[in-house]
Design a binder for these strands. Structure first.
Lengths: 333, 333
DNA sequence: CGGGGATTCTAAACCGATTTAGTTATGGGC
DNA sequence: GCCCATAACTAAATCGGTTTAGAATCCCCG
């Protein structure tokens, strides 16, 4: 199959490429009504579709943005991706989704490929280990927005959760219910990934603000597959925790699985709150109290920040936007 | 910031563009060891990244494929996307994910945009309402693979579930447990979406093969938000069903939510099986028996089929591949 | 009827790579 | 020292659009 190019259209319509190009760009004032019709018909007849690659080469803009998520397995990631896709669809942009698998090497590879492909901007959940790369994009004035995680020293626009508040909401709730032995468990914090650290810090601060000294035995940061072990260790303590805060949805799944397996009753034997809402929270038995991230709002904000960098509208915003989580109060605590 | 092009590299290294291009394409036999080193150093020094857009224009290949899912809200879609992304990452391809939202108009828009962007191929969960578009891609010999749904008359390579078997596994299990009044509920079947139809057909056939006449009152196809109503209607029947087959994960969620709200006990008051595994199935109370789609296997197969069309390796495969589901036997039935 | 501005249209350069055909340099054999 | 094959390199065309500067045509008016 021979592909139809602008030259074919021009020849058929007996006008120059230039005029066809003007037509494609809707600059109708540069041609007579008659030629406009003629071109229109020819395009229809030949079933012509402009080659965006060729256009992009000249215009240096691809109407495509990259989204590099650290780990696509989190519900939060997929919610955000979906909302970003929606937002950009409205704007006539495509998004290229990349999953870095929490692997800085892979992240680097993706970022370089995206830039080579001349995407107009990138939204990235940074793994945190490619400072030079981030730095370069920044100094190249390449549009970039960080999501979920910040890297303080870089001054890059960031959208993330108020993680400190997220933990506080949960801990306050536990305390309100009369628990004092409160544990927290999150996935591993290699590379100082900010949300995990902040959630732990928020947890500590909230305890202290209630006059409860925190106990390091109640804090676990482990890989997903080691969660059952960590939980067992909790229950072997002299004073096992009365409440557990699960640091994200994957941890929550593992916690619930463990409790089910060991026939530990929630909330009577132990209270549970999860950070990140999960689809089944409202009909699980018991229903699960969660701290919800406003994923769609966050995604929209990130998309908006990126778009304004791309269009160079408004002055540069390099601030860290922290959105507020909400406690979805249910029965697991 | 000025972008560095191949010309800059050529000038700096005091060789021609052609030679630099040969270098970029690793055709080192066309140059001396010395110039190779020289170019290497220059590229390093200038921090040069080739512009893939320019390359694509000439080579007519973008190393990018499109994935158009009908509805990204299904767990199955996200599992498949993830696996496809993985597969193509290994091959040095990017994927552009598009969510058609079950809307043929949007699907059309996306397909046209993807083709305009010169993607090398498309994997699509067809909404089923753009026959002319599918037809054109086919006759253009544009690489395309259907996923999840088939459109018989088009002869396009397809990867989908053996939906008939999926229903049969569930119905057989229900019958084995002694139930005869078995209902099925799926989301709406506008546009003859094949999996839903096949699941219902499989349900009917299995009942009949056991000598149970099927009762049309036990079959509901409704939008997600009308599921509670449909369920209520079941329970108002003279003989309410003893077992319900949920046609996909979203339906299953709604069914479980309803049972929870109305304090209907699974499996004592009613047995439930879901098609599509869900993350919480193994620790819900009760654990949920599901019919699982081999999502990763299906994704890999689809990716492989697409890649072989792109590379024109092997002869054309236009067959419909139906993979077998498995029953994950748990306690909800 | 000629001048001049507006309208309509086009030729050619350009974007940044690849590729082909061809040129120049090198060195070995006699 | 000359010839010639091979190695090393390059100029120019090309991909399919956009854009700019300028050319051709039209029309109105004095």
């Amino acid at each position: 199959m021979k592909t139809i190019t602008i030259t074919d259209v021009a020849n058929h319509a007996k006008v120059s490429k230039s005029t066809v190009s003007q037509y494609l760009n809707k600059r109708y004032e540069y041609m007579s009504e008659k030629t406009r019709k003629k071109i229109e018909e020819t395009i229809e007849e030949l079933n012509y579709q402009p080659n965006i690659i060729a256009r992009s080469l000249k215009q240096k803009s691809t109407f495509t943005v990259g989204v590099v998520v650290a780990n696509i397995l989190h519900t939060f990631s997929t919610q955000v991706i979906r909302a970003i896709e929606n937002y950009f669809y409205e704007q006539g942009f495509h998004i290229i989704v990349c999953n870095a698998d929490d692997n800085p090497e892979k992240e680097k590879n993706y970022i370089e490929m995206l830039r080579a492909k001349q995407v107009d901007g990138i939204i990235i959940f940074p793994t945190g280990d490619n400072l030079d790369l981030y730095q370069r994009m920044k100094s190249d004035q390449f549009p970039i927005v960080f999501m979920d995680r910040t890297i303080e020293e870089l001054n890059i626009a960031t959208v993330m959760l108020d993680n400190h508040l997220a933990s506080k909401l949960a801990v306050d709730r536990f305390i309100e219910k009369g628990f004092e032995n409160i544990a927290i468990i999150t996935t591993s914090i290699i590379r100082d990934i900010s949300p995990r650290i902040e959630r732990i810090q928020g947890y500590k601060d909230s305890l202290e603000s209630h006059g409860i000294p925190f106990n390091s035995e109640y804090i676990k940061t482990v890989n997903a597959n080691e969660i059952p072990i960590a939980l067992s260790e909790f229950f072997e303590l002299e004073k096992p925790p009365q409440a557990i805060l699960a640091g994200n949805d994957i941890v929550l799944n593992e916690v619930l699985r463990y409790m089910k397996q060991h026939e530990i009753n929630i909330p009577y034997d132990i209270a549970v709150i999860g950070i990140d809402d999960v689809p089944y929270a409202s009909f699980y038995t018991p229903t699960i109290t969660t701290v919800n991230q406003p994923a769609i709002e966050m995604a929209n904000l990130a998309a908006e920040l990126l778009l304004s960098q791309i269009n160079k509208t408004g002055k540069e915003d390099t601030s860290v936007h922290r959105l507020k989580p909400t406690l979805l109060s249910r029965n697991s605590c």
